[in-house]
Amino acid sequence: MSKRVKIGAREKKTLMRIFWRSFLLQAVWSYERMQNIGFLFSILPKLKELYGNDIDRLKESCRRHLGYFNTHPYMASFILGHVARCEERIAAGEPGVVEEVNRFKLQMAGPLAATGDKYFWSVFRPLVGLIGVLLFLLGVQPYYLIPLIFILLYNLPTYRHRYKMLVYGYYKKEKMSELMKNAKVHVSLSIMPFAGLLTVLACVVLFSLELGAVRGPVFAGVTVLVAMLRKYLRISATRLLYIVVLISIIGGLIF
């Protein structure tokens, strides 16, 4: 923290504005250029700070950010932070930075999106969702606590992450690869699925106990069967739902 570059109140204010505007990153998502307008919308406070009333330079810098851009919405703030810093260098007339910015945006977006998708969409969010389900099965009352806990448990870490990434990107004391290594992304990616599996198992056990001696084991059996069908035959969850319901109704009619 001590090595931080001194920055003024104005820059800090701009950074906060970029942060809030980055929540609308995907507002104009299109197949053709994806988050391009969202990115421009988010970085605009910086451009306005730098070029103010010089409409020609402002126009020119806006146009540079109109190209294709797509990454994970939580990871974008890192790129935004770094680009904001680069824009300062561009405004100061440093040569070659424009190309650096364009390359950086294209190059970082993919790997960051992959990390974000994996970390947030396919591990962290299911985990928090399952914790919500588990709370319900454990009989947490009153019921409104469940959505409340879900939303807080999910958002406190992600909100902090979004802000941190912006600040990291802006100061960029260390390389991204170092940052990822220090953040122990890989360690959490090995632990969280394990925690997820434990939560699922707890849910299955609680559900089965709730359902009693006959339906309980059937429930557990169907769960394992579905897991295998999903993993090896990749049948979609929606289709499986209809199949299970159909079989279950027929079963119910017979017995």
Partner: peptide, 17 residues
């Protein structure tokens, strides 16, 4: 042209094991 991103990782690698 994006090399590794969500589609590749989740869509291909994870789905196809």
């Amino acid at each position: 042209d994006r090399l590794i991103h969500g589609q590749v990782l989740e869509g291909w690698i994870h789905n196809l094991n």
